[in-house]
Amino acid sequence: MINKIVASPAEAVADIFDGAVVMISGFGEAGSPIELIHALIDQGAKDLTVISNNTGSGHVGLAALIENRRVKKMICSFPRTANSKVFPELYKNGEIELELVPQGTLAERIRSGGAGIPAFYTPTSVGTPLADGKETREFNGRTYVLQHALEADFSLVKCKAADRYGNLIYNKTARNFGPIMCTAAKTAIVQTKQIVDLGRLDPEAVVTPGIFVSSVVEVADPAEESKLVADDRRYPW
């Protein structure tokens, strides 16, 4: 029997090793797998390279992973938001590396990584400082910049419902990077609000086919990052 369901976030993240490349879904708090991130903090893996659009808020979730000095390098498009304090502080002190990538290029690098495409040319960032030192090439009289695919050892993703084959559906704009991150990691670990029986997800409406998913853990009542930040909570509690 195929059964990708695991019992707890701790079990789900147990194999993440020091130095791993980890993709973390989410755009701000929408789609951020906060329980998996907290389990990763408890687990202790360090020297991680994290690929995520932002760097977290307050002192919980991704911001807490960074604050607990588990992240050596961030690859992201927008490393500061209204409530991000942790990353800017470490960055200013030279204690964390940053690779800044335009958001659409970040998405396409991840998509390519999952699709077996090692690199691609894109018009984004041509003529800007973010293209400095990168290979360019002309197609049809227009200049494009070479970008390399991103792959990860693990991805941590949040969704709305999953079955034991790992088929997933998402919730509204919390989908964002989840589907492509599932494809681009050797091991895609998903927290879901609900696990449903096989056949309950309409095959026409499945967003992430189970083939891209390694394990699924049910977190029926996930924390809301913005509420934790408003209450000035810190992880570990």
């Binding site: 498009s77 927008f78 490393p79 500061r80 990353f87 800017p88 960055y91 200013k92 940053l98 800044l100 990538v101 335009p102 958001q103 659409g104 290029t105 894109t122 018009p123 984004t124 960032s125 041509v126 800007t128 973010l130």
Partner: peptide, 14 residues
């Protein structure tokens, strides 16, 4: 000293 952040700005004009 500013933290660089680009978001989707460059993609929107590409």
């Amino acid at each position: 000293g500013a933290i660089p952040a680009v978001g989707g700005a460059m993609d929107l004009v590409a």
